[in-house]
Simulated assay, not measured.
Amino acid sequence: MRAPRPSASRRLLAASLLVAVGVLAGCGGAATATPQAPPSFVNAPSDDGQMHLPPADTTVGFRERALAEFRDFPQYGGTAVNPDHTRLTIRWHGEVPDALRQVIDDYAPQVPFEIVIEGTEFLPGDLRAEADRLLREHAPVIQGAGPRPAGDGVDVTVSSQAVQAAGSAEAALAENGVVSDFPIFVISVGDVEPA
């Protein structure tokens, strides 16, 4: 005896579910392929030992609040989530203000990861200003610049043409008089398209 054929609506539902699963799997792969994008959630084991997803807005909300309240502070160096998503780090230079401790206290019970404050070697505001100066004074040799996440210097992208002419990125910086009071780290060679 033959099994009855599924109705057209059931076939459509099954096809829709397969497409949805494929799209969700693709989204997961895309998130993994772009590690520079901040994660919007963290997997955390619950009391029953199973992995559950916390509300997506807890991590995003914490990072947005920290940015909104402290972005204009020269001591603030941003936030980062470690690769295994067990720790969120706030980078700060100098004494930590009570207002920042209060933000941490407000969110700590809601998030399934550790929140830590990590000191920076240099004042992040000074590094941001130096990155701006390097871009302003040394373009087009310097194609991009920004403070290093750990606050220990400035990351730069050096022009491909300058590197080819000089033989190396370091030689391109030296030959073009690119110097700084802060350590400079060449993170890439390339050309940034104008916006």
Rank of each mutant, 00 (worst) to 15 (best):
R5V: 15
A8T: 13
L12M: 08
L13S: 02
L13E: 10
A14W: 09
S16H: 09
L17Y: 12
L17P: 08
L17W: 14
L17N: 14
L18V: 02
A20Y: 07
A20W: 03
G22E: 06
L24T: 11
G28Q: 15
G29Y: 12
A33P: 05
P35R: 14
P35Y: 13
A37G: 11
P39E: 10
V42Y: 10
N43I: 09
P45K: 10
D47A: 12
G49I: 09
G49Q: 07
M51Y: 13
P54Q: 11
A56C: 07
A56L: 03
A56S: 02
T58H: 05
T58Q: 09
T59V: 11
V60K: 11
R63I: 10
E64Q: 06
L67K: 00
L67V: 04
D72T: 15
D72Y: 12
F73S: 13
F73E: 13
Q75A: 14
Y76I: 07
Y76Q: 07
P83F: 02
D84P: 03
H85K: 13
H85L: 13
T86M: 14
R87L: 15
R87S: 14
I90K: 11
R91T: 08
R91F: 09
W92L: 12
H93A: 03
E95S: 09
V96P: 05
V96S: 04
V96D: 04
L100R: 01
R101T: 01
Q102E: 10
P109R: 07
F113S: 00
V116P: 02
I117W: 02
E118T: 12
T120N: 00
T120V: 05
E121T: 06
E121L: 01
F122K: 04
P124L: 00
P124D: 03
D126E: 15
L127H: 06
R128A: 15
E130Q: 06
D132G: 07
L135D: 13
E137D: 15
H138C: 04
A139Y: 14
P140L: 05
P140E: 06
V141A: 10
I142A: 00
I142R: 03
Q143C: 10
P147Q: 04
P147N: 04
A150I: 05
A150F: 00
G151I: 10
D152Y: 13
V154Y: 04
V154Q: 04
V154D: 04
V154F: 00
V156F: 09
V158K: 00
Q161I: 05
V163R: 08
V163M: 05
Q164G: 01
A165P: 01
A165H: 07
A171H: 06
A172S: 02
A172H: 00
L173V: 00
A174F: 07
N176P: 13
G177K: 07
S180Y: 08
F182V: 09
P183K: 03
F185W: 06
F185D: 05
V186W: 06
I187T: 14
V189R: 00
G190S: 00
G190A: 01
D191I: 15
P194N: 04
P194G: 06
A195V: 11
